[in-house]
Simulated scan of single mutants.
Amino acid sequence: MNTYPNVTETKEVLKQLVSIPSPSGNTGKVIQFVEDHLANLGVETKRNRKGGLIATIPGENAQEHRMLTAHVDTLGAMVKEVKSNGRLRIDLIGGFKYNSIEGEYCEIQTSNGDVVTGTILMHQTSVHVYKDAGKAERNQQNMEVRIDAKVENAKDVRALGIEVGDFVSFDPRVKLTENGFIKSRHLDDKASVAILLQLIKRIKEEEITLPYTTHFLISNNEEIGYGGNSNITPETVEYLAVDMGAMGDGQSTDEYTVSICVKDASGPYHYELRKNLVNLAQKNDIGYQLDIYPYYGSDASAAIRAGNDIIHGLIGPGIDSSHAFERTHEKSLEQTEQLLYHYVQSELVSY
């Protein structure tokens, strides 16, 4: 049996995932997609009260459990104000900067379910009118949504059903290149969700009996800090978050290997679990990098903060330009899936 993942299929699942708008707080459609996907694999799931999804695969040992998580919620925005000029002021959902969404196409989902398209722009965009177009600060005061409808005032906007609190999602602009790159918004963390779905499929198709009962949590509030901090069974010993590896100056993470995080803003991850992950990578000829993410927190760190008595870890594919115009390569997806494949069949670390 081939132990390597079908990365072409993983990419197609990823393309479907990023094409479904799901800013934190409005993830119902993408959770339904994942739920249906797992149902087609014959995997039973349940939703928690926060709207996340949990799939459980029984293992030989039902007294000690594992949990793996990836989050399906993304960055986004909300309508902050319907402006008198017929445009919208927005409030950001998640940790990113206004400059990363300037010029982006977007969708406004009204509370009655209608979708209105638009573009996120500086108010002072036209260089023919505004002398400071290039120098004005990219902030909430200056950025606005230009709606694709004939609207001249706030009354016109509200006639479309748009109101304060409506969700705004960004066009992912997903593109799969012939040489293996995946360019898209929201690879954080839908790349990892696609990997987990493929991992579950392999476990089912290869009829693998896992050594421990293993839960897969698809969380839906990670970008705002509390996606994976609950619904962790008392039997859970190891909790592994699968989330993006952050790239940049001083970082080891790249787009072609799996990133194993040793520390982030929450502090060090469990040393013995990290060593086990490295050993599995070396033993199975899996490309990996060890790294520290200085301005980062995961579902695993949220679970620790919530008081769960668990061994926690974090791995994921390397993502360039995180929380902006993201990119990774199929090799990183492949290496991450390989490590997870071997990890879920390994023994728990000592504690």
Rank of each mutant, 00 (worst) to 15 (best):
M1P: 08
V7R: 01
Q16S: 12
S19N: 08
S19T: 00
S19D: 02
I20W: 06
P21Q: 05
G25H: 02
G28T: 12
Q32D: 14
E35Q: 07
E35P: 06
G42S: 03
R47A: 07
I54W: 03
I54P: 01
P58I: 09
P58Q: 12
R66C: 10
R66K: 12
R66P: 10
M67H: 06
D73C: 07
G76T: 00
E81C: 01
S84E: 11
R89Q: 14
G95V: 02
F96H: 03
N99R: 15
G103L: 03
C106H: 10
E107R: 12
I108Y: 12
S111A: 15
S111R: 15
N112S: 14
G118N: 08
G118S: 02
S126Y: 10
H128A: 10
H128K: 12
N139S: 07
Q140G: 14
M143S: 00
V145N: 07
A149S: 09
V151W: 04
E152N: 14
D156S: 10
V157W: 06
I162D: 08
P172C: 09
T177S: 02
K183H: 11
S184R: 09
S184K: 09
V193R: 04
Q198F: 00
Q198M: 03
I203Y: 05
E205T: 06
L210M: 05
T213C: 08
T214I: 12
H215P: 09
I218V: 11
N221E: 11
Y226M: 07
Y226Q: 08
Y226H: 05
G227M: 00
G228Y: 09
N229H: 03
N229K: 05
S230D: 09
T233E: 14
E235C: 13
Y239V: 11
L240S: 02
G245S: 02
M247N: 11
E255D: 04
V262M: 15
V262H: 13
A265R: 06
P268K: 09
P268A: 11
E272R: 15
L280P: 07
K283C: 03
G287L: 10
Q289M: 12
A300Q: 07
S301Y: 00
I304E: 06
A306D: 08
G307R: 10
N308H: 15
P317S: 03
I319T: 02
E326N: 04
R327D: 01
T328L: 15
E330R: 00
E330P: 00
L339R: 01
S350R: 10
